[in-house]
Design a protein around this nucleic acid. Sequence first.
DNA 1: CTGAAAGCGCTTACAG
DNA 2: CTGAAAGCGCTTACAG
Lengths: 342, 342
Amino acid sequence: MRITIKDIARLAGVSPATVSKIINNYSDVGEATKQKVLSIMEETGYRPTHSAQSLATKKSNLIGVIFAGKINVDINDPFFVDIVNSFKKTVGSLGYDLLFFSNEKFQATDDDYLARCRYYQVDGCIIISGDELQPSIIELDRSEIPCIGVDLVLSGERSGYLMTDNYKVSSKVIEHFYLLGHRSIAHIGGKKGSPISDMRYNGFIRALGEYGLPIIEEYIIRGDSFKEQSGYNVMKKLLSLPEVPKAVYAASDLMAFGAIRAIKEAGLRIPEDIAIVGCDDLDACRYIDPPLTTISQDKEKMGKLAAYMLSDIIEKNLGTSSLFVEPELIVRKTCGAYIKDF
Amino acid sequence: MRITIKDIARLAGVSPATVSKIINNYSDVGEATKQKVLSIMEETGYRPTHSAQSLATKKSNLIGVIFAGKINVDINDPFFVDIVNSFKKTVGSLGYDLLFFSNEKFQATDDDYLARCRYYQVDGCIIISGDELQPSIIELDRSEIPCIGVDLVLSGERSGYLMTDNYKVSSKVIEHFYLLGHRSIAHIGGKKGSPISDMRYNGFIRALGEYGLPIIEEYIIRGDSFKEQSGYNVMKKLLSLPEVPKAVYAASDLMAFGAIRAIKEAGLRIPEDIAIVGCDDLDACRYIDPPLTTISQDKEKMGKLAAYMLSDIIEKNLGTSSLFVEPELIVRKTCGAYIKDF
DNA sequence: CTGAAAGCGCTTACAG
DNA sequence: CTGAAAGCGCTTACAG
């Protein structure tokens, strides 16, 4: 039924071995035979079969995509999707296709990623973190499978990772507020214990020091998630203080949205009464009223870097490396600064 | 190196054939041998290899995911992602994993989807439309590969499709406006020629008839895309009319966002001066000011249905079938109707 | 209930 | 420059 390498060989009057060499671009093949075989492959529309190639070579040209953590089930997280989109383009041009693991399958061992990677013989993996990690990710990190973590520190021999410089995220916010004349800055932090939110929190404290700004205990409150409601709740507390802060830095856009809702409910104006900046640069930032000033991660670049780093590990057997990507301040209207060159 | 079925057989003192039968749940195996083999597999952590299984059975347990059309390169479209997310869960529980094709690869023949499906021996495909179709999708539809189209009419022997009932989308909007007392309704249409936008347009015209409402030529303008700017431009035209419409139905949320911008710039109020409803229920609808009333597609259900339809075609060899999913009106604040039971 | 043997479609030393 | 042969790790009639 299916047309195989044997058929091509017969049609061209050569051996399957020779056809194989031509498919794989070996140099030691006669130009004449090469052309003949090539044209027959063309005519017949022949294509090799992945499983046969994979079985023989132990390579699959497949990259596994894993969204680690409890949030695992959902691949529609905007951050995840943007990274993967960019990653896919680059890795695609390098000759790989993407395999998304269904978490619903190998449930037996609570998500045995390593087993699945071996099952499919993936050449490598990209693991994007969703904060709460499973042990099976650690197992995968330590294995022979090349891995690259995004927002996730990996330390295996054939692993690498990258993330936005989250300290810089906070210091850019502080700098912005500082230049605008603010000296007392509040922070709506993300959940304590989440690596990303901890980095932003610590970055905030550190930046305060660098700019000689006071750390005001009552102004620093951490929510229980990155969600809208959490930001709303924290802002309510801030609003109930004897002296309401005039500048607040929310660790996520969603929290900033919640804070904006609370501020409006309190009858206060943004940015006149309270200036606010978020974090993530969701699409909705442009549509909310007023449009939210925020920090953007260069997801395009991150996906691309992840692709190249992974391919370096796979092909050149490079060891662990890590990269920190520069974040960018996006000035919109929640801080009263309209000048673009901030 | 890798532990194989032969090792297990040797360790258990049986033949590879017997181990294979146990792996594949054949019934004609002695209980005693079965238990022994099972425990050895457990101890050794043995897992079969995908490529070997696939080569022998000609099945891959892989479903190809294709985002058809020119927009192809980007998988971060919210509609696409939500559908795929739901699809993935269901199809995952059915034992399949997802393969995302890189468009950058087989560029030779402008995206030879069929060839790629055969190369990977995918068991089936889900094709989500991005309006502008490539010929290679048609080729795939006509092939032996089971396909299910989302927002895309497929007619192959082993194909099926589903989409939201886009006529109903429009009639629900008209009904809402009608109940609110509006009799002259404007339409900011999507690009002419795009199947989805045409259905919404035609549904609009038809619903007008059903409610005995007039078709006002000047009030019906189609944009050149579903984008924000396009909605802005069309709304400007509407605003320049001698009699400005008081109710407008935009064929996409993004267009509605653009229209809102134009309305605000003109110094008019929403919904007091102009009521507006969008289409898609993007996240941003909740954050824009005022929150946008819109029509939501049941993406969760659509993904699930797509999964079951596809698996029916694959396993039961079922023929073509098509499904139309009921859309839902989400009442927010752009029409002046706050009552939930609309 | 169990196993020997052939086959799935390719690749890779190796010999010539 | 070319080909015969063995091997990759499974499965599937078929025979017993």
